[in-house]
């Protein structure tokens, strides 16, 4: 092949790429990502609100709960979802092939066990009804809290419920305590709830991640959209860091309250930057694999699963912005 032919090929490829880009159908974005309201996830929505995320390329589908997000992801209606790592493991175990491409946050106190008035200590949990999401994360939190309380599992009654049902259950008295997280946690604490246990006592264990179906990344447009989404997330994170006063009000659009209130919901959350994400996701992601193993062990312990082997999703750092990228705003 002559150099001239190579040149012609290159020019043709560029022309095709330009045309293909121009011809992408407007109706269906290249990537659809489901997310319920959670401070760690909200930076994506803030980026969208600020125009930093091309809604033609990425569609953020707001859901009421992680369960709904998982259903949409499992049914293929969305290409990805913001979920806890535990939820990702559960979907993967049920046959939905996933790739973890971003860590939104690491819980260091954001997940809490809150007791109603009268349940003001771990020991007071004995014999109580505790609302908890039907997830390994909920089970893990409850497990760790009971360990701290030196109570056996049989000492309490676990009431499985999704996050959007917890507020109602709290008020109608059907539960005495609840394993929950922001923003509901702050609401319950303001309403007189008592913090009994939180994830700061089990650091580096609870991750919120973005999981994408690898099939969506087989298309060039899908990969480009994912990179754009992650870039927008980190841009919003940067804005939150540099101008929290402004960012708080903008996060409040979905988190509720005003700016300072919204910022308070980030209490107990470690928002890893690009470098930290690379550190956690690259090179085989040993920490995440260890967490996966621990979650499986808990599940086995509480009898949620029988087998010890379960598929672990792919973990990829390749869609993150480069770690040395210096954003100016």
């Amino acid at each position: 092949m002559t150099p001239a032919r190579v040149l012609q090929g290159l020019l043709l490829a560029i022309a095709i790429a330009v045309l293909a880009g121009a011809c992408t159908p407007a109706e269906r974005p290249a990537l659809r990502v489901a997310s319920h309201v959670w401070p760690g996830y909200e930076l994506m929505f803030m980026a969208r609100h600020e125009g930093w995320l091309d809604s033609k390329a990425v569609e953020l589908v707001a859901t009421g709960s992680a369960t709904e997000s998982m259903q949409l992801l499992a049914s293929g209606e969305v290409d990805g979802a913001a979920l806890t790592f535990d939820e990702v493991l559960r979907l993967q175990a049920k046959g939905t092939d996933l790739a973890v491409v971003l860590i939104f946050n690491i819980s260091s106190g954001a997940d809490m066990l809150i007791g109603k008035a009268g349940v003001d200590s771990l020991a007071a949990l004995d014999g109580k009804r505790i609302g908890v999401e039907d997830s390994a994360l909920g089970a893990l939190m409850l497990h760790k809290a009971l360990q701290a309380a030196e109570l056996p599992h049989g000492a309490i009654t676990a009431v499985p419920m999704t996050i959007d049902a917890q507020h109602g259950a709290w008020h109608d008295g059907s539960i005495d305590a609840v394993v929950t997280y922001e923003p509901l946690a702050s609401t319950l604490l303001v309403a007189g709830g008592e913090l009994l246990f939180d994830s700061s006592q089990i650091p580096d264990t609870i991750y919120d991640v973005l999981a994408i179906r690898p099939a969506a990344l087989q298309r060039r447009t899908g990969r480009a959209a994912l990179r754009a989404l992650l870039g927008a997330h980190f841009r919003a994170l940067d804005h939150l860091r540099s101008n929290p006063a402004d960012a708080g009000y903008r996060l409040a659009i979905r988190l509720g309250g005003d700016g300072p209130t919204a910022l308070r919901t980030f209490r107990g959350l470690h928002l890893p930057d690009v470098h930290t994400n690379h550190r956690l996701l690259a090179h085989g992601a040993p920490r995440l694999h260890a967490v996966a193993a621990e979650l499986l062990a808990v599940k086995r312990e509480i009898g949620a699963i029988a087998t010890s082997a379960a598929p672990v999703p792919q973990i990829s750092a390749e869609y993150l912005p480069p770690p040395n990228g210096q954003r100016t705003r």
Binding site: R250, A252, G259
Partner: peptide, 9 residues
């Protein structure tokens, strides 16, 4: 122009 409505502000 370009009014922003920020909750609580």
């Amino acid at each position: 122009l370009a009014a922003e409505t920020l909750p609580g502000y």
